[in-house]
Design a protein around this nucleic acid. Structure first.
Lengths: 254, 254
DNA sequence: GCATGTGATTGACAAAAATCAATTGGGAAT
DNA sequence: ATTCCCAATTGATTTTTGTCAATCACATGC
């Protein structure tokens, strides 16, 4: 069974890269680049497909490259001395990771693992470094992304301090939805419940029970990874009271 | 009684500003500026003294200025719909705040209040904005500060998820100390216990009991706001096991 | 079809923290 | 000194979450 995974890990031919060029324009950080800059970055990019479970790098590894998620999901995590795992972030398509190593002695400050089959773009950090110091506009774009990320972290910290477990799940679901829609909704949890639990800072058992309680209190319907409801406001009323942001909030899951 | 506080709020003459010029060189963000740039910033700066309790601005206020803490402590916080308060950060001397409004539609994303009598430097955001777009090196310096801040946030998120209440207090104390020293230590809590509790995401009662437990388990001595112990390692062994950073860690309190 | 492994759920219990209530203690104002 | 106020502590209790163990559900390979 292992050899099947190995074949998934193989690099595809670079000829498929052009299929993904347009993705570069959709990444917040790179949107502000000129087409020429993007072209330059793309010349040094490598496209990779990875199966679930693939460890991309470990905390402390030398960081020569950073990554861009094109499809699938990747988790960033750190491990404590007594063996616990802290999820730093869970990234969907369009997100960048590993780029902060630029400013941290070229060492990754966390480990990264593919959690749903993923297509990644791997780019040399040196190229980004070059472009940034050449172009102040890119540096400003990067600053903007950092500030936004920082705000999201603030928010998350607030959530773990002030929201109950069912509220945190409700908030998580809301961020998976387009909150501008008012009516009925339906979604699939994007990755394992165990991992969502860990992401939200709770045990799988607590997650399971909290989800049941969220169902009872808001009237949403659950079957496996599928979740449906009649109105987004059901969730918002329940979850957003313990949050300092106003609904609809702009944060995305995560 | 009110008029006494009012007198504390008064602006001092700008002539005292030169006394604080050397502080500018000690702020991570500004250290990388040229002396000329710092001089330019300083020309637009105003020095302010504020008493405990002074609210500097509220979340959503228009942000024309940012601040630099020269002495004292300032807390940044947000309030939820159901009336709870989330501490975003607590800042000692040398820290900058409000500068991220630069990238967020010039509105403060949190409120700020002086919690220990403070000397502040107030600077127009426009000046910083100018300098940054003129000088890529300053943008890079700011990026560096942002990345560092982001790391600290990651850390804090991890702590609230994985550490027990007594461990979080132990970690907090460690970050108040110079961890390079090995021997006996002694410190005063820098602000109210109630606020430290809130900062660490727990109730005042929990803080009080957790501090007692920390004392019992590590042998530190407590009288009021004064805390002493025979070896920093007492604390490190107890608190740092549930953390992914290695001791001594570089993070400072906050 | 069946065995197998993993993720998910459920129950019983323990631990941690929040909550409610009462009291203590120390500084500031008078 | 005395009063007042507020931070801090302590006790009793409830709520929440974690832990341990058993079971269930479901996809996969054989």
């Amino acid at each position: 069974m292992a050899f099947i995974k190995v074949s998934m890990d193989a690099l595809h031919a670079d000829t498929t890269l052009s299929n993904y060029m347009h993705h570069l324009a959709e990444v917040p950080l790179l949107r502000q680049c000129t087409p020429a800059q993007r072209q330059h970055l793309a010349q040094h990019a490598r496209l990779e497909h990875h199966a679930k479970g693939k460890v991309l790098f470990l905390s402390g590894d030398r960081a020569d490259h950073f990554f861009l998620v094109l499809t699938g999901w990747v988790k960033l995590y750190r491990e404590t001395l007594d063996g616990m795992q802290a999820i730093v972030d869970v990234l969907p398509a369009g997100h960048l990771f590993g780029e902060t190593a630029l400013f941290e002695e070229n060492v990754f400050p966390f480990s990264a693992e593919v959690i749903e089959p993923a297509t990644l773009l791997r780019l040399p950090i040196a190229v980004l470094s070059d472009e940034i110091s050449k172009d102040p506009a890119l540096a400003l774009a990067m600053l903007r992304v950092m500030v936004q990320y920082r705000r999201q972290q603030d928010q998350e910290l607030e959530h773990t301090k002030l929201q109950s477990a069912p509220q945190r799940i409700g908030c998580f679901l809301l961020r998976l939805l387009d909150q501008r829609n008012q009516g009925p909704f339906s979604l699939n949890l994007p990755y394992d419940k165990t991992l969502i639990a860990s992401r939200l800072g709770m045990q799988p058992e607590t997650f399971s029970r909290a989800l049941t309680r969220l169902k009872d209190e808001t009237g949403i319907r659950i079957s496996g990874a599928r979740i449906e409801g009649d109105a987004i406001s059901q969730l918002a009323i329940y979850a957003c009271g313990a949050c300092s942001s106003t609904f609809p909030c702009k944060d995305k899951a995560g």
